[in-house]
Design a protein around this nucleic acid. Structure first.
Lengths: 182, 182
DNA sequence: CTGTAATTTCAGTAAATACTGAAATTACAG
DNA sequence: CTGTAATTTCAGTATTTACTGAAATTACAG
């Protein structure tokens, strides 16, 4: 059973579990991650199992998944035999990892599938039309990916400045528009 | 569409079904949408059921979902009693709708949850730390949303120009950097 | 090595989600 | 209206996905 979680942290953990499950991430893994992120000190598997009331083996599988996404890192605490896990201290690093992993797992295979279908010779008018849409999709995804990768290059400090820009952020893009309209 | 799917279209439909299911969208709904997008002419429910081998009722539910996401629109064809459905002709319109709907369904509730937790008074050091992370998350999400909404304002034509910019797209952001470093 | 604590694996089960067919409802031509 | 085609609903079932406990494996202190 859940032990030791304050209502505040509980709420946040539950919310991210819920959101995770809408994004193809197992609810319990989402909860585990929120817990780790919200905790200053690294947690061990038993801490997580106890705090969330999951079986030890479920936690083990969740950790394995989070490690495979590179969202947490393993560390050993002095004088502790057990393994501890923690999330990056900077939320922007977390977001960048998420974006990067999603790209590798979903975007790249999609682009590859589309490319393979685009080199085929259309057999009829319908395939010609379908290919045209695929071409547009491919271009769009490629472009959005390019943009995203540029933004990912920003470090937290730069991002902080951007943040301060606030609602005037549109100006950056207006500027770009001017660039485009030359 | 009373005939079978060509391998090309079949592959694309299957791929997007697969991808959809990774993004919290039911596989069959993903397939249905790919089919509609790739087809020049609007399709009726029976077309879809036949092309994909789903039950008529499953198609009905899928259509309901796609309509609720505003990803397809209903239309009547002259001399046809049945209802037909089609996707926007412009893939960027589709992407914008997806982004917008995701924002409404997931981002906004998340921001709201975070805000509610942030106005609470932290009960101890741990909650203080947790709130700090929540604050950072809130700021980051808000900023990314702002950026996204600016980009969403672009129409297809502008996007086309951006596309032509290709890999030199980084320059737009370099420019922004200069702006920030003043 | 040996013994024990920590972790992982995995077969079985529980839970959630998706899908179907039959029945109900709605839409509309005559 | 009436009859029929089209669509939706929904209870039941199938499928997929998640979770657990027991057993196996690994890690390491002594």
């Amino acid at each position: 059973m859940t032990k030791n979680l304050t209502p505040m942290i509980q709420s946040c953990v539950m919310h991210f579990g819920e959101m995770g499950s809408r994004w193809g991430i197992n609810r319990t893994v989402g909860q585990m991650y929120a817990l780790i992120v919200l905790n200053k000190e690294p947690l061990c598997a038993d801490d997580i199992a106890e705090a969330l009331g999951f079986s030890r083996s479920n936690v083990s599988m969740g950790i394995k998944e989070l490690l495979s996404w590179e969202l947490i890192k393993l560390q050993h605490l002095p004088g502790e035999r057990r393994e501890f896990y923690s999330a990056p201290g900077d939320v922007w690093d977390i977001a960048k990892t998420l974006i990067e992993q999603r790209r590798k797992r979903e975007i790249d295979p999609t682009l590859s599938t589309l490319r393979n279908l685009l080199i085929e010779v259309p057999a009829n008018t319908e395939e010609e039309y379908a290919q045209q849409r695929m071409r547009e999709m491919h271009e769009l995804i490629e472009m959005l990916t390019l943009w995203t990768s540029e933004i990912q290059r920003l470090d937290s400090a730069k991002l902080g400045k951007l943040l301060k820009l606030g609602s005037s952020i549109g100006k950056v893009l207006d500027l770009k528009d001017k660039l485009l309209n030359r």
